[in-house]
Amino acid sequence: MSKDSIIDLKDARFRWPGRASFALSVPEFLVEKGQSVLLLGESGSGKSTLLSMICGTILADSGSVSVNGTDLKTLSGWSRDRFRAEQIGVIFQQFNLLPFGSVTDNILLPLKFAPSRRKRCHNPSRQAAELCQALGLPEGIASSKAANLSVGQQQRVAVARALIGAPPILIADEPTSSLDELAQSNFLDLMFHQVAAQETTLIMVSHDPRLADRFDRTVHMNDIATIQRQAS
């Protein structure tokens, strides 16, 4: 394991249980600290499985998955959840927010599960407001209900939530797929600006190769992983 790689998978294999058996094996996947990586792949190429393995919601059956120097295997289930909260901010494709919560509640939610991240931001509500402002969200949005926001606004709130307390890693799973082209580029500008400011390592999944210019590195799922399907 090289010293400055923050994510390090070696011979990691995972097989989903159940009838539609689907197994993913990743011989090697390294991401350096502070790098931004675009992960390209069709649907069904194992992107979600790979991200779940990095996030520690699923545990590799064999091989090793190390995140920021910690082998996830060595952590208990509860510690992995805590570890994820501390180390990784997550943005989904859509429906990122709890619709009944306020914008502030949504942004501060990960801090509930990550005491160190909470300690890192001295005044969480203020940092939430600053992030909102930096991400171009209208003023006074903090107390609105998440359900009342436009999709674009919701995605930006999701960025604020993923970045609050400056976790070392940001994982974004096709965050722009629900946005139109203009909003997409606008969104990426804002996200990259914040990622650069916090020196966050970024892994973003997409199926749009045109985005590659913005990233330090582009990786195709087919190049790093093999998939086995078994019809049972």
Binding site: C55, T57, G77, W78, D81, R82, R84, A85, E86, V90, F92, F95, N96, L97, L98, L109, P110, K112, F113, A114, R161
Partner: peptide, 16 residues
Amino acid sequence: RREMAIFRAMGASPIA
């Protein structure tokens, strides 16, 4: 399920 997934992603354990 979506709500649960958000909580999980934020670091909530299944016990939570």
